[in-house]
């Protein structure tokens, strides 16, 4: 466990010790951490909120943050690292002020999430889980965020932007980069990722009006209630199941003609292979000995050229989760 050992002999152990927070920061975080720990009968339960807390300090979970959590809870850095790398909301590298997540789980993807993500990638010039040069926007694709009746959905710092289109999503990121105030469909006017992380650590949003912002339930949440109250007739023509117009044979034709740029490539399929989503895109392991930055894992590209996104080794696959 001593730092002399790691520096003298290369054991592939984590670099120790992590640099400490400045005294003032540490004192402040310790006070916060005490409040978090007090909520639970067992201190270790505070680990997830504490990881959100250190993320609110530095924008991602650093070695310093891990060391801090370990010291507060009496755990080892390895135990904390094991937890920090399991959950996708903990960022493992410096990222933008605004985390823009496009839902590409099946329903949102089909309803247009794939097109939105593609559009944002080319508009921003970044790939999945990458940050724009100005440090404002980190783009990622996300999984189902429990808003399927508002599909396609984009989340920014975990506030809801419902019923998006490629155009509305582009305007959204442009506004974010220009520093304009952006208000979600459901949620409070955006704060930075760090400020959001503090709410997640269990410290209520201090801004006046944040709880009330965007009003009550969203429109889709109310459609059943309104029907039950007889308030609105269905907005559209009722289509009895048996008598639906038989357009099914050429569903694609109109939009084909509207979109002359289509290539022969099946767009969905090509994309799946080109953009391995967070699904099995390997992530870096946690901070390690500089001489063995990735551990004993071979270069994935060297082994398997068959499918673009394949992660060929079991060990790396394990780390990616």
């Amino acid at each position: 466990m001593t730092s002399e050992t790691t520096s003298a002999v290369n054991l592939g152990l984590p670099q120790l010790p992590a640099p400490d927070y400045p005294a003032e920061v540490r004192a402040r975080l310790e006070a916060d951490a005490g409040e978090v720990v007090a909520r639970y009968p067992d201190s270790r339960s505070a680990l997830l909120p504490l990881l959100h807390l250190v993320q609110s300090e530095e924008g991602h979970v650093t070695r310093t943050g891990i060391q801090f959590c370990a010291e507060v809870l009496g755990l080892t850095a390895a135990e904390v690292t094991a937890v920090a790398t399991f959950y996708t909301m903990y960022r493992r590298k410096p990222s933008g002020d605004y985390q823009v997540g496009v839902c590409t789980n099946t329903l949102c993807a089909v309803m247009g999430g794939d097109a939105i993500l593609d559009e944002l990638k080319s508009h921003l010039g970044v790939g999945n889980n990458e940050t724009t040069e100005d440090g404002k926007v980190t783009l990622e694709h996300i999984e189902c965020n429990a808003a399927c009746d508002f599909a396609p959905v984009v989340m920014v710092n975990w506030e809801f932007f419902d019923n998006q289109t490629p155009e509305s999503a582009k305007r959204l990121v442009d506004d974010l980069r220009a520093g304009r105030t952006v208000e979600p469909t459901r949620g409070a006017p955006l704060c930075t990722f760090k400020e959001t992380a503090r709410i997640l650590a269990g410290f209520p949003d201090p801004r006046p009006g944040a709880v009330e912002a965007s009003g009550g339930a969203g429109h889709a949440s109310l459609v059943g209630l309104k029907l039950a109250k007889g308030e609105t007739a269905p907005a559209r023509v009722v289509m009895p199941r048996g008598t639906v117009p038989q357009q099914a044979d050429e569903p694609a034709e109109p939009s084909d003609t509207a979109k002359p740029s289509d290539t022969a490539k099946p767009a969905g399929a090509g994309e799946a292979a080109d953009t391995p989503s967070s699904h099995d895109a390997p992530q870096k392991t946690s901070a390690s000995d500089p001489a063995h930055p990735e551990g004993p894992v071979k270069d994935p590209q060297a082994e398997d050229g068959k499918t673009g996104g394949a992660t060929p080794t079991g060990t790396e696959e394990g780390e990616a989760r």
């Binding site: 089909v110 309803m111 097109a115 694609a252 939009s255 979109k259």
Partner: peptide
């Protein structure tokens, strides 16, 4: 299939 045909828009 053409993915564009199944989008919301």
């Amino acid at each position: 299939f053409d993915p564009a045909a199944s989008t919301a828009w």
